[in-house]
Amino acid sequence: MGGRIASLDVLRGVAILGTFGTNVWAFTHPRGVTGFLADFGSGAGDTATALLQMITNGKFLGLLSIMFGIGLAIQHRSAVRRGQRWPGWYLWRSALLLFEGLLHYVLVFEFDVLMFYAVVSVLVAYLVGRGPRVQVAWMAVLGAVNLAVVGLITLALLTGGTTIGDPGFVLTTDSWWGGVRARVEYFAVFRAEGFLVLPLSGLLFLAGVRLFQAGALEDSARGARIQRRLVVWGLGLGVPLNVTTTLAGGDWFAVDRYVCAPLVAFGLLGAITALVNRMRAEPGPVRRGVTAVGRSAMSCYIGQNLLASALCYPWGLGLAQRWGHLGPWFTGAVWLLVAALLVVGASWWMRRFPRGPVETVWDWAYRAPRRRSVAA
């Protein structure tokens, strides 16, 4: 499209920093991830805390999923223009992403999303080149499955047939190795949500593909119309619904996270894109920093979880046990600190290198077998 899309890296950067706004609550709980889950499921905490958690819960993960679909559509268009077979080597990218996600889960963080993105990307890779009718049909099926899953979970919660939150064990964070062993032992528990939201992820990936193909990121009259519609539906409708389901309590958790939050994500996409496209002045330090985070998204996604673990867990500085009782104040401070470190670090790195550190290793691993096949 004649160069980088102005809003693309900003959107990725916002999604990465916003996703950490969800994860940080688990890191800063005095009893760690399992303590956070137990309190969340029991409805512990005041209304103010619930509303603060609502700001990020599910929305930026939804935005990240949409952005992944947009990235896949861009790669498909590039491959078609070069006359390359599709999906071809893209499937190797998915395999690498699956391996990277597995390492991230085992070594760093319980709620990694890269593994599930890798699985969904294989399906969407075969659909990205199909016609609009096929794509929309798949979106309808995936959306229906997601609503069915959400409906069953909500019905079970309302009737007392199940509960959310307390996993029934304590995940120790006294040592890094103890956390690794626990994540391996309780793999099925911590990976359960990812399997439940595979239909939603597929829907959001395909929505990203459709939005890109429709010109939603363009700085044009067509793009502006799509952006306005996204804001009206995503924010005008999604935010009131999101507030309602949040205040309704834990029984509406699934509707809140897997229906309302993704709807708000589309509104964020439209609003941020429109804002960036209207900025004619030279980008300031904040926008440059967020852009740098977006250009090194995988490095920052992994890096933020590493930093939070080192700051909050007992095997690191153990700040959560000392200050976790302060609740949102401590959580907000940790988010600000880690976000600032990411913005400054990414800005410094991207001024000197074309890719983030994880992206550099990942690109080498992606290209290595291709070079060998060409040489052979």
Rank of each mutant, 00 (worst) to 15 (best):
Y301L: 04
L342F: 07
L268C: 11
A320M: 08
G270Y: 01
Y313A: 13
T273W: 06
L275I: 00
V293M: 00
M350P: 01
C312Q: 05
R280W: 06
F253M: 11
T246G: 15
G270Q: 06
M350Y: 03
A308T: 03
A333G: 04
P354N: 07
D256G: 06
L341V: 03
L268V: 08
Q304V: 07
A281L: 04
V334Y: 05
L319I: 10
V344T: 05
G345D: 12
A261I: 15
D251I: 00
S347R: 09
A292K: 00
V276F: 13
P314S: 12
V334N: 11
L342N: 03
V264G: 10
L337C: 13
A274H: 15
D256P: 00
F353K: 07
C300L: 04
L319F: 08
R288P: 08
R322N: 10
A310W: 15
M298V: 15
W329N: 02
A297S: 15
R351S: 14
C260I: 00
G284T: 06
G294C: 05
P314H: 11
L275Y: 14
V334S: 12
L275M: 12
W323I: 06
T291E: 15
V344L: 15
R322G: 09
F253R: 08
W349C: 12
V255N: 06
G249R: 00
G249F: 05
E282T: 04
F253D: 13
G284M: 02
F266K: 03
I302D: 05
L311E: 07
L307H: 04
W348T: 07
A310T: 12
N277W: 07
L307P: 03
V343F: 11
F253I: 02
Y258V: 06
R352I: 03
A274W: 15
